[in-house]
Design a protein around this nucleic acid. Structure first.
Lengths: 284, 284
DNA sequence: GTTCCGCATGAATCGATAG
DNA sequence: ACTATCGATTCATGCGGAA
């Protein structure tokens, strides 16, 4: 196989996932609209309704995921009336009732979190990456995400300014860059469950909320070449773009035409299959 | 007052907290025994029983905390049968039913987390620091924990003789650029809700899991000199030692004599008040 | 070509004011 | 009283043009 198939769907993921086969997906990686945010984009799900809104989808995802597959959910609760809302932790409990295993919670430390100052809280600088599985025997390719202790750590160290050292005296314990090939032959260690990455800002064509390195890391960890990756809330297609570059097959679903069009432009045209409404376009 | 009072109690915190006055504590900072861990120390509460075991204490804490006070709970769920157990998130929900506000969740990134390798997960490198409050109007002294500004500022703020830049008018916000001049000469900024701290490595006589910097940070943030700090699971007394050095009054409760004795030795003897069993010793 | 440096922008939240 | 809108506040990053 020369390239991987990238199938992009325009429509509601709750409906479109129904047409996906049982036990066919190796990794679901997605960042759904957070409650009440992107109000104009997704209809603004109220925090109190969020769990009930999400559960029909997670039920479908449980069906289409392979027994060896993994579901990684990037999410964070909003502040509502000076409190962290509980919809995320309630969702975890309800998904377990559906049959999901809550295997792990990774932390994404956002080094350049949104600025701001409030009398009762500091900047929110992290998000959850909830790992769910269908069975205890899931695929995990740990060696693929090993961190070079040599080059990466040293370069990282070099860049630290005096003030950085004061703020974070013993460096950062885990992290990763984009060019794995540069690390071949170096001494490597396993990473931890804390990921240090900046959000991507200032990108003109698309403002990806998560950096490419985020789906890249989980795709490396939980899939092999030729496996199937699904992002039911594709947005501008970051997950699918990365999956394609990594020679994984992928499915992306997006309900808003504006985002869908951006995603279309970001993936390479070979092996791209588009499903827009009733029509089906294939580009070879 | 020359020094702060440090009162150490030997006994069960669920009982001893009952004798503490209503609305008298400014900060509760504690790291309770995690479920099933330190089995030999605390009797090993089973994960499934953890919430019910904890709730009577949190109810007392709600009573004795000042309306302006804060409860910081350092906790992390254990892995049980390849899953993260749900007792922590269930506890959050139940404590809210008791009347607590779940204001925030800080992340303690443990930079030197214990090494290890498992087939299905990486090293656990973070813990939760759950912030609960009694009311929305709690004391928070943000200026006490400011950190050096990032190195970006060195270049960014070098020359600002021009007129203030105005943000893209398409965005509603009034704009960061407009107030850039406010940043000249500033060298400290507010921190985020992610704390990078190493675990205490020095193998001492006790199993102090958190470094002194951890309670120190929260004591600075949520109390002033002369305020009252409580650690109901004192352990070897790290919280109380730090509180004393920071001229805060404190109460520590520990059920195990071995730990209690270690704590006794770690605090300075002036103003130390001991309550061991029925007897009361005052040392002045 | 390489480094430097200006600059737009981002899953935000609170309190006051208006409807 | 209760909800909606709006102004104020604040860092760090990567891009792209300039040196």
């Amino acid at each position: 196989m020369a390239g991987a198939s990238t199938q992009l769907f325009l429509g509601d993921c709750k409906e479109i996932t129904k047409s996906i086969e049982d036990n066919s997906i190796d990794l679901v990686f997605t960042s759904p609209p957070y409650a009440d945010s992107r109000k104009d984009s997704y209809g603004g799900i109220h925090p109190d309704d969020y769990v009930e809104w999400f559960l029909p989808l997670s039920k479908e995802l449980l069906r289409i995921l392979k027994p060896t597959g993994t579901f990684v959910l990037n999410i964070k609760e909003r502040v509502v009336e000076s409190e962290r809302h509980t919809y995320v932790i309630e969702l975890i409990l309800k998904m377990r009732e559906q049959g999901w295993l809550w295997t792990e919670e990774f932390i994404w430390h956002k080094k350049n979190s949104h600025p701001g100052k409030w009398p009762n809280r500091f900047r929110d600088s992290w998000e959850r990456l909830l790992q769910f599985n269908k069975s205890k025997k899931f695929n995990m390719h740990q060696e693929e995400v090993m961190v070079p202790i040599g080059s990466w750590a040293e370069n990282r160290l070099k860049k630290l300014s005096k003030t950085d050292k004061v703020r974070d005296p013993s460096k950062v314990g885990s992290g990763f860059g984009k060019n794995v090939s540069n690390w071949i032959g170096r001494d490597k260690v396993y990473p931890t469950n804390v990921l240090h990455m900046a959000t991507e800002t200032g990108n003109k064509n698309h403002s990806a909320v998560f950096p490419e390195a985020l789906p890249e890391w989980f795709i490396k960890l939980f899939t092999r070449e030729g496996d199937w990756v699904l992002d039911p809330f594709m947005g501008s297609g970051t997950t699918n773009k990365v999956a394609q570059e990594m020679r994984r097959n992928s499915i992306g679903i997006e309900i808003l035409p504006e985002y869908f069009d951006v995603a279309k432009e970001r993936v390479h045209k070979e092996q791209l299959v588009l499903f827009e409404g009733r029509e089906r376009y294939e580009i070879d």
